[in-house]
Design a protein around this nucleic acid. Structure first.
Lengths: 339, 339
DNA sequence: CTGTTAGCGCGTTCAT
DNA sequence: ATGAACGCGCTAACAG
């Protein structure tokens, strides 16, 4: 039944016959309508309607060597952090006729190389990565193949091809600087163990000037582990004044656990997150965090990829979109009542 | 450069030549290794290594009429609700060699028909939908084409093909029953305006027996709009006792706003969410909600789709995975201290 | 167990 | 402005 129906699907050949033109004329009516006379064009389009023709991009792509697909590599699809990026990436590519397909490399990166090969088998016209490709072998391979690659959510002097993001090292040192400016001495860190969070940690410690109590959890972090993380940090230092968390969900867990323990935020404990998730501004107290424009990363990544696919030269292959610390109540910012 | 490198990519032909076998033998070494002699198999695999061959699934799919891809239709990719489903769907399909590609229909459903046609042009072996396909025309078209379709997160007597989910009508009446059992009379509803939330609303009102103050917001709802929704509901009824929210993020906003206004939960105001998001159990107070196993929906949907693709008959095309109300502190459940 | 033949549906190249 | 021939890279169907 399925098979039978599939075999019945009209091809461009059927359309051409129905319209009384040659195959190629029918083809042009869809891909390059400008060159046809109005009458033939109209006849073909009518035939498309009548036959219920749906183009076969697989066949077209085989010949033209352009699949009109882009592969996307993410650690895990459900990481909230990357969602706005995936959304705008999908939308921008879609508007240009490209389809994004996603693959999960997992946070241990062991699957990275195999995954890339699996995806390459579908002949994507390009690859967008959340983060940097870590395997040197995979980087070499991609460079050698000449596939357009846009790495995101990070920065590198030596991207495979193009990179659009920001410096996690700088984020870390900016937060440390902020904490220092507040005069906080006894601080702690609750962080996921992924590469980018580790870089922020490194930047923080370098700028802070000394080691601080740290709880490291397997990425991705969330509210539940945030609660446990605060418990652990308080064991390490009961008089801790401020905590930097590697995600807003993580930070929210710290807020909840603080409330549970009767700690006032920010008086007893200040909290800073990362990412500026949609809820951060609306928590009680509102959450100080590092704002990153994930949606813009997706848009820029898509645009760069589209340029790359069109063969347009890319002037600046390293795009730093920056970040900013958004100060809110959880680190002591006074605000007017909302609403 | 890209183009040149792309043209240099080894084909199965190159592998066959390198191994000194025919094209089809090389093909079988990859797709059906069992039928070859060990020696030839080894020779071919060696040649694959030497040449750096990456199969071309586009070409293979053209001939075999199986693209090994599944199309996924979601309202918006970043809706938290569907994330576990998308994750397990991706994983289960991936394990079977299938690639999921996602398309966003948007909550207004106007793009639904066009999107389906766009996706069909890539010749997916099947389509998984988050929710039901609403357009009757699209339903007819899909049925006629004989494409395997798995609708999810809902139930229907008359699915296009297969459906795996639960009854939103029953969810609504179950929550209403729960509220009634608590003796709450002055209740309110904060809900998104998507089809499924509307059905839960309908079920609630039917079981509750009369109309109640309701705030309807455009889907998807989140924490920020939850805060505003509570403000609105309190205007409609300052003495409201309990609120049912159409998502946990929405409910969290209600909790936050309640705290902001000095309302004690559950003493002054009881709150029930929907979805049992990962944070629901860890909020303060923990959130009573309707548990739905989104990950299992994804797994089952994938399995049913794989069966369908293999031509295995599906005995029960309507799979009800049910739901359950998880009572927590936000509606008065006493709990032992956590940790 | 291995090979030959014949396309899958479409776009490119050249001709008219 | 339109068409004929060819092949993209691979696999199904049949031979041997």
């Amino acid at each position: 039944m399925t098979r039978a129906a599939a075999l019945k699907r009209p091809t461009l050949h059927d359309v051409a016959r129905e319209a009384g033109v040659s195959l190629i004329t029918a083809s042009r009516a869809l891909s390059n309508p400008g060159v046809l006379s109005e009458k033939t064009l109209e006849r073909v389009l009518q035939a498309v309607q009548d036959t219920g023709y749906i183009p076969n991009l697989l066949a077209g792509g085989l010949k033209s060597q352009r699949s009109m697909t882009i592969a996307g590599l993410v650690p895990i699809i459900s990481v909230p952090q990357f969602l706005p990026t995936i959304r705008t990436l999908t939308e921008t590519l879609d508007a240009a006729g490209y389809q994004l397909f996603l693959g999960q490399s997992g946070y241990d990166y062991s699957r990275e190389e195999r995954l890339i090969d699996t995806m390459l088998a579908r002949r994507p016209d390009g690859i967008v990565v959340a983060g940097l490709v870590r395997s040197e072998q995979a980087r070499d391979r991609l460079r050698r193949l000449g596939v357009p690659v846009v790495e995101t959510w990070d920065l590198s002097d030596r991207p495979i091809d193009v990179v659009v993001g920001f410096s996690h090292l700088k984020v870390g040192s900016a937060v440390a600087g902020y904490f220092l400016s507040k005069g906080w001495d006894r601080v702690g860190i609750a962080t996921g163990d992924d590469q980018r969070a580790m870089q922020r940690l490194e930047g923080f410690l370098a700028a802070f000037g000394r080691d601080v109590p740290t709880v490291k959890v397997p990425a991705p972090s969330n509210l539940a582990v945030g609660r446990r993380a605060l418990a652990e940090l308080l064991q390490k230092d009961p008089d801790i004044q401020a905590i930097y968390c590697s995600s807003d969900g993580f930070a929210q867990g710290v807020l909840v656990e603080a409330a549970h323990r009767g700690l006032r935020v920010p008086e007893d404990l200040a909290v800073c997150g990362f990412g500026d998730a949609d809820f951060a501004a609306h928590l009680l107290p509102s959450l100080t965090t590092v704002h990153v424009d994930g949606a813009e990363i997706g848009r820029r990544a898509a645009q760069l990829m589209l340029d790359r696919c069109k063969g347009i030269a890319i002037e600046h292959p390293i795009v730093d979109l920056g970040f900013r610390i958004v100060e809110r109540e959880s680190t002591g910012k006074r605000t007017l009542p909302t609403n």
